[in-house]
Structure formats: structure tokens, C-alpha cells
Design a protein around this nucleic acid. Structure first.
Length: 579
DNA sequence: GCCGTTTTCGGCCCGACTGTTTTCAGTCG
């Protein structure tokens, strides 16, 4: 059983217990454990094989949940879960995904109307039998109908870049009105998560009710979910949910923290505040006297609030309750967290010679315009037929062209490279005599994604032991919406990369983000180094560098961890693997 | 069910919006 399967069972137990009306803290415990398991870069099963007691090191997993995990890993089943599920019809829990419908009402529907699944619920709405129940009414029924409709359309999470696009359009719209004084994007978009559920925007305004009216009247808006004095939510065309919250200048920092999250980060901060006889909410940080009297201590900026909690400002990308609060309290946050301006070049680019849409000359010019000090042209090797990948002969001619272009242009260095395929057996797709002529060799898997972990790991090890390989491109091979990561002993591979001086790529393509933040952080802790590449096939795709930087920041990477922050001379030395 | 710079027991973040109600429960983030 993998982490996702274990976590989803715990989530489902949480749902079932909630409907049964169990202790809310018990429910919360299951969900917290599930979330923490999802956030682990390692498989719990691997942890278990090494040393079963390591399961206790997962936060939120105590004696009881450990036993349940052990049962799942050793038998592939969980008796407690199976007996619990017997109490509910199949498809029952899908209804919890409907916006505005929670466990209490769901329980009521089941008991009073024998509703078993979404189809039953839809029927009940149509027949208006729902609105006759106590505590329900016509508006509630209509809302539920709409929620079912949206659910069926498949409203889900968006890729970071798509969410950013919608957010930017919204901000541009809001800025056209003089009611808005200050606008900030918050939520998981500000934290740079690879997918974003809803888009949170915080604003300081001159007139709250006018601001809310203007927001709700947005041309993109399809449906208003909620509209209050300080908070509104709308659904926009395409299915994304936008939340607008307004805050006064004196509370703006506290509101930004609240609205940026993560939820787990906020909860921990509030708990720390409570221990110190303080209270944190979206209006500020307050001291609380014995008599319950509150006095505001700060709220204007995030920095002020963190300071009153006894810690420095924490960058949004780190706010996941993954050790950043403890690090901040101990003064051990990363000192030089990577920034976009640290990036001096892009080392994975395709051109017309294979499947790119741009000439070498044009992409060099554009890179120079962007202020890059160097780039590498890395086209495909012959195995990738569909991309018209190059054999040794074409490659060497291509290298000669690149050398000439590099010599003809000043102010930017153009490295000649390749993205060479790793074949099924771990050999590379090109002979060493050709690879030897290159400045940089990127190795990548583009086929045989479904090998089992042992074979896939052996394949990778063989490739990484080729002395000409400098970079492992998009190591997990996943595509966020369509392809799961390959099965790989990531720990072993990261250690080998560290040992062999092979840089791990953070591929910034919106569908990839590969390595992801969690693997990246794990690899850093194992001593590996990184390179952030767009894998651009045209000019516009060069813009994606920012998603790699934000992912690196989420992984706590610093400037020194990243190859393409080095000056050209240092970079060439760093690529040297020695004979 | 978890957890400990007060605690191995008694806590567990905090507030906004909605709809159906006249004071609040349910839901959400």
C-alpha cells in the first residue's frame, strides 16, 4: 500500500466518524495523520521495512494509528475500516464533496429520506422533498442543485500557472476601480503550490460594500457563492473559485497571514500564541489578560505579527507546518532562499532541430534580452522519433552550429548539450564519443514508465553511472494531471546523484514541476544539488522559470544549491565529473 | 486520537457567511 492509499483510508474514516457524530478531535486526528502522510517524501512502506518504529516519527501518528498503518502494510487491509464502511452505501461519501453540504445535513438526509448517493440527492431536489425537511428550505434546495451541477462539471484544482493567469486577470479588473487601494494575492497561489484549489485575494478598500459589489459584478463571474460585508466568493467561468477578503490597513498583515495559510501553519501559530497568553486572528495579534481583556499588539504587517510571536518573518512558500515555525523560533530559516534574480541561465532548451518551435539564434537573442549570462541548447536524442531526435552524426553537426553562434554573439555564452534518452536497460541513447564533445549532458526517461521499482531504479543507476551525465531531467516523469510518477527508490537515486555530481532538475513546465517540492527537499537533505530548467520549446515557455524558483523555495533551496545561479566559469567547473 | 518549556490528563485555532430561524447550527477556509 502506498502513502496515497493509506491517507485516503484515514480521510475516509474521518468522514465516516464525522457523519456518525464522533468526537471532533478524533476526526481531526485522522485527517491530520492523513495529510502528514500525503506530505511525506518517502513511502511509509519503505520506512516500515527499514525500521517499524520510524512510523512513530510521522507527526500526528501515535500508538493507535501506527498499529492501523502496520496492519495495512502487512495485510493490505484494515479491519476497522472495512467494518466501518459496511455502515454506508457505496458512493455515499461523494456527497461530501458538494459545496455547502457537510456531515450533519448529510446524516439528516440519509435518515429522513434514505438518500444514498448524489443521484438520490438530485432526485430529492427535483421533487422538492428536501425543502420540506426541518431546517431546510427552498433556497437551500436550489443551492444544493447548483452544487450538484458544478460537481458534475468536475470543478477541481488548477495548475499553478492557470490559477495565476485567472488571478492576474482578476487583479487587473479590480485595479480599474478606484475603490481598491491595495490588492494582494494570498492563499496557496502565494505559497506557490503546484496546484491551486481556489484563488484568494486580499484588498484594502475605500468602501467595503462598493468593493464587494464591484467584485461580484466581474465579467468573468458565473455564480456568486457568498457575498458578505468583508468576504465574498464567486465561481468564474471555467470553474475556479475566487475569494475576496477586505481588510483595513491596521489589520492588513494579519489578514494576509490568515489568508495565505497554510491552514496547518496558521493553527500552529495560533497555538503558540495561546501558550503565550496571546491570540492571533485575521485582525491582529492580541494580548489576553486574566480577565479576558484583549489588547492589540500588532497587525499592520506580517513582519510585526511574526515578531510579536517571537520569530522572524517566514516566506510564504515555507508556510506548510513542515518545520518552518520551529526553524524560525530557533533562528535557523534558510539564509539565502533562492530568488528569480539569482538565476543566470536556462540549461534545458529545445529548438527547431528537434521538436522546438524556435531557432537557436532567436532563443539566444531572447535569453540575452532577459539578462541571462548563458543558456544550453539540449535537443532530443534519436530514440524520441516523434521529436526527430538526433543521432551522433547530426548531433555533432548541430554542436558545430551552436559553437559558431556562440562565438558570434557577445554577452551570453551558449553551451552545447543534449537531452539524451535513458533506454529501457539503462544505457544511453548516444555513444560516449558524441557525448564527450558536449558541455552538458542531460539524461531523461521518456519511455517505459511502468517498470517496477527495482527495475526502474537499476535502470536509473546504470544511466547515472555514465561519467558524461551531468543532469537528471524531470526525474519522476510525472505529469500532474495525466501521468503518475515512475516507481523509483528516490532515496537511493538522490544519494547517487550527490555522489556522482549529477544535478537533479527541477523542470518548471506547468504540467511537470518535477522534481516536486517534497522530493527536492528530501534530496537536499541527502546532499544533492539542483538545476532549474524550463525545458522550453518556444520563447513564451521561458517565462515558466518562476514556477521552478517558487518550487525550489518551497523545498528550502538556497542559491548555493542551484547550478544555474553560478557564474559561467564556476558552472563549467561544477559540471566536471572527473575521470 | 494526539500530545507535553505548566500538563501522562485535559486540552485541542478562530471567525465569516448562509439559511432558517428569532438566537443559531452548519459549513467553510
Amino acid at each position: 500500500m502506498n502513502n496515497k492509499e493509506i491517507a485516503s483510508i484515514f480521510y475516509r474514516i474521518g468522514d465516516a466518524l464525522e457523519i456518525k457524530g464522533e468526537n471532533v478531535f478524533k476526526i481531526r486526528a485522522y485527517r491530520r495523520a492523513a495529510r502528514n502522510i500525503m506530505d511525506l517524501p518517502r513511502e511509509v512502506s519503505a520506512l516500515f521495512q527499514q525500521d517499524p518504529s520510524r512510523i512513530n516519527s510521522i507527526p500526528g501518528v501515535g500508538r493507535d494509528l501506527k498499529e492501523k498503518i502496520v496492519e495495512m502494510l502487512s495485510s493490505g487491509r484494515l479491519a476497522y475500516f472495512e467494518s466501518l464502511m459496511k455502515e454506508f452505501p457505496p458512493g455515499f461519501f461523494d456527497m461530501l464533496k458538494l459545496s455547502g453540504l457537510g456531515p450533519k445535513r448529510l446524516k439528516k438526509f440519509k435518515e429522513k429520506l434514505n438518500i444514498k448517493n448524489i443521484d438520490d440527492l438530485e432526485k430529492a431536489c427535483r421533487q422538492h422533498s428536501l425543502s420540506k425537511l426541518e431546517g431546510e428550505g427552498e433556497r437551500a434546495e436550489a443551492k444544493l442543485s447548483a452544487a450538484i451541477e458544478y460537481y458534475k462539471k468536475g470543478v477541481g484544482r488548477f495548475l499553478l500557472q492557470d490559477a495565476e493567469y485567472i488571478a492576474e486577470k482578476t487583479v487587473a479588473y479590480l485595479k480599474k476601480s478606484s475603490v481598491f487601494k491595495k490588492i494582494e494575492i494570498a492563499g496557496s497561489l502565494r505559497r506557490g503550490k503546484e496546484t491551486v484549489g481556489d484563488i484568494d485575494i486580499l484588498a484594502e478598500v475605500r468602501d467595503k460594500s462598493k468593493a464587494m459589489d464591484y467584485f461580484a459584478a466581474m465579467p468573468l463571474a458565473e455564480k456568486i457563492i457568498a457575498k458578505g460585508a468583508v468576504k465574498s466568493s464567486i465561481l468564474v467561468k471555467g470553474g475556479a473559485q475566487l475569494d475576496l477578503r477586505v481588510a483595513s490597513a491596521g489589520s492588513f498583515g494579519a489578514a494576509l497571514m490568515y489568508f495565505t495559510g497554510s491552514k496547518a501553519h496558521n493553527i500552529k501559530l495560533r497555538r503558540i500564541a495561546k501558550l503565550k497568553k496571546r491570540k492571533v486572528n485575521e485582525y491582529g495579534i492580541f494580548s489576553v489578560s486574566a480577565g479576558g481583556k484583549e489588547k492589540k499588539l500588532a497587525g499592520k504587517t506580517e513582519k510585526d505579527v511574526y515578531q510579536k510571536l517571537g520569530m522572524p518573518w517566514i516566506p510564504p512558500e515555507l508556510r506548510e507546518d513542515n518545520g518552518e515555525i520551529e526553524a524560525a523560533l530557533a533562528g535557523r530559516l534558510p539564509e539565502n532562499l533562492l530568488t528569480e534574480k539569482d538565476i543566470l541561465g536556462d540549461l534545458h532548451l529545445h529548438t527547431r532541430e528537434t521538436d522546438g518551435n524556435v531557432s537557436v539564434k532567436d532563443i539566444v537573442k531572447e535569453a540575452k534580452r532577459r539578462g541571462y549570462k548563458y543558456i544550453a541548447i539540449t535537443n532530443h536524442s534519436k530514440y524520441v522519433r516523434i521529436a526527430r531526435g538526433m543521432d551522433e552524426k547530426r548531433l555533432l553537426a548541430h554542436v558545430a552550429d551552436i559553437r559558431k553562434i556562440s562565438a558570434d554573439i557577445s554577452g551570453i555564452k551558449v553551451f552545447a548539450g543534449i537531452e539524451v534518452d535513458i533506454l529501457e536497460d539503462g544505457r544511453l541513447d548516444l555513444e560516449d564519443y558524441a557525448l564527450k564533445e558536449l558541455d552538458i549532458v542531460i539524461a531523461a526517461v521518456h519511455s517505459h514508465f511502468s517498470l517496477d521499482e527495482k527495475k526502474q531504479t537499476e535502470r536509473m543507476i546504470k544511466a547515472l553511472n555514465n561519467k558524461y551525465v551531468n543532469v537528471l531531467a524531470h526525474p519522476s516523469g510525472r505529469l500532474i494531471t495525466t501521468r503518475t510518477p515512475i516507481s523509483l527508490d528516490f532515496e537511493k537515486i538522490f544519494l547517487l546523484c550527490a555522489k556522482n555530481n549529477v544535478f537533479l532538475e527541477v523542470n518548471t513546465h506547468g504540467e511537470r514541476i518535477d522534481l516536486n517540492d517534497l522530493h527536492c527537499r528530501m534530496a537536499k537533505n541527502l546532499g544533492a544539488k539542483f538545476v532549474i530548467n524550463t525545458d522550453a520549446h518556444d520563447i513564451a515557455q521561458l517565462d515558466a522559470m518562476k514556477y521552478g524558483v517558487i518550487t525550489a523555495r518551497r523545498a528550502w533551496l538556497e542559491k548555493k544549491d542551484v547550478l544555474n545561479t553560478y557564474a559561467a566559469g564556476k558552472l563549467i567547473k561544477a559540471l566536471c565529473r572527473g575521470e
